[in-house]
Write a protein that binds this DNA or RNA. Structure first.
Lengths: 239, 239
DNA sequence: CGCACAATTGAGCAAGCTCAAGGAGTGTGG
DNA sequence: CCACACTCCTTGAGCTTGCTCAATTGTGCG
């Protein structure tokens, strides 16, 4: 069941047999959440962490004027609230953007297992460190890049992350987000998202039909995004 | 020498004597960096992590058009690149915004010590988790709040974080950043930063003279920022 | 005193927003 | 099988926040 997580971690460092067994011995409960439902509410006390097995989910914060900002797009293989293990209360909500399949892992069991596996601990710590690196990269976009560059960057990043867990085929991926949701990911209005997508299609950089994105010209897309995948830490180097 | 870090960690959870000793046994090298100098370059391979003992430092990323975005303001007690322990290469630069005093801790020594102290590991992991929470909070500001609210939020956040390490007195704190640097923290232009600061002063929310900020009306400042310190995780709860 | 840098102010400009309306796709009940 | 309802996408038009360019005024320091 943890295949998708193990696969991603093994892009970064070897897992020993003992470590893989330790992971698989963890008690886990399977959960399904429908698109549009909250997986966790903002501010909730959490005592288990949720690994996304399939689907798309967003970390989201609400603003007083009725707006919202997604602070991360979770894909298969992502722990949506692993930091809850340490924070105890969640500083954001988690919303299902498509039907989601999750595994809930109790914190006490996780803590107990990790005490005996420092290297495994570091690999999970790395997962949260990559989250932070993704956050920083988004911040640079939100603060200093224009709307088209931000959209291009989101598509490049999502492509590479999905590729790492085997969800890319024919230079494309299924991507069931609405333009309203994209707007709240990118800090834009949905009207502007629409105009930018029209432009990216007209320029031949992407196709986007029936909830599926196809990259038509990676080089130009990555260039307009200033995309450099360093921050995703997808190379093998001992931790 | 690690006092400022220990003090902050003890706001969150007890440290045992053994844990405190283990920290103090770590080999450390003291470094001084002048204001305006890079502490670490973007993309550098790192083999030690740098704890900021005094001064202000910024995590910064450069953009092709010559712009830059700070993604975090580091204060005394902050590890500027603890995630380098896991990432191995840094996805951002670290710039001294004032004269800075730092302690460099070799990764191999840190790894070795932490292997025997799982609880200490979790406390350091929590440090990086709080970094990520700060990132998310900034993202919400960059994406969905106006300039005045963002500035107010930065001042509230900085106040609370400095208070946690004992650097607040008389409702104020020393804050030697230029308006250009503030602009690059907040994703604004320096001209606009200036106008907002004039407004905040005129409204009686703050004073800002001689590199020192004084909060004149915390309630209204926090309200205009929609500031909720939950994400700073400054309460005591076992990790 | 003079230099370099930071703060301030003015004026015009633009990226992206809001408001509004029409079209297209999809699911559902009669 | 159709009609309606709902959501999402698309497009137009005017507006606002914050930007750029530019000039002026402090201010710390050798």
């Amino acid at each position: 069941m943890l295949d998708v997580l193990v696969r991603k971690m093994e892009r970064r460092d070897e897992l020993s047999v003992g470590e893989r067994d330790a992971l698989n011995r963890l008690p886990m409960e399977r959960r399904h959440v429908a698109a549009g439902d909250f997986i966790v509410r903002e501010g909730a006390h959490v005592s288990r962490s949720l690994l996304l097995i399939s689907g798309f989910a967003g970390r989201v914060s609400l603003v007083a004027d009725g707006g919202r900002q997604f602070t991360e797009l979770g894909i298969a293989g992502d722990f949506m609230d692993l930091h809850g293990l340490l924070m105890k209360r969640l500083d954001h909500g988690v919303l299902a953007l498509s039907p989601c399949e999750l595994l809930a892992v109790p914190h006490d069991a996780l803590t107990e297992v990790l005490a005996d596996y420092p290297h495994l601990t570091r690999l999970l710590w790395l997962e949260t460190a990559v989250d932070a690196a993704i956050h920083r990269t988004w911040m640079v976009g939100l603060g200093r890049k224009d709307a088209q560059s931000r959209m291009a960057h989101l598509l490049c990043e999502t492509f590479v992350r999905l590729e790492a867990v085997g969800l890319v085929s024919d230079s494309g991926f299924d991507f069931p987000l609405s333009q309203i949701e994209l707007a709240d990911l990118l800090g834009l209005s949905s009207v502007h998202v629409n105009r930018i997508l029209m432009a990216l299609r007209a320029d031949g950089l992407i196709d986007w039909r029936q909830k599926r994105v196809t990259i038509r010209n990676w080089d130009r897309l990555a260039a307009s995004a200033e995309f450099d995948p360093l921050y995703l830490r997808l190379w093998k180097e001992p931790v």
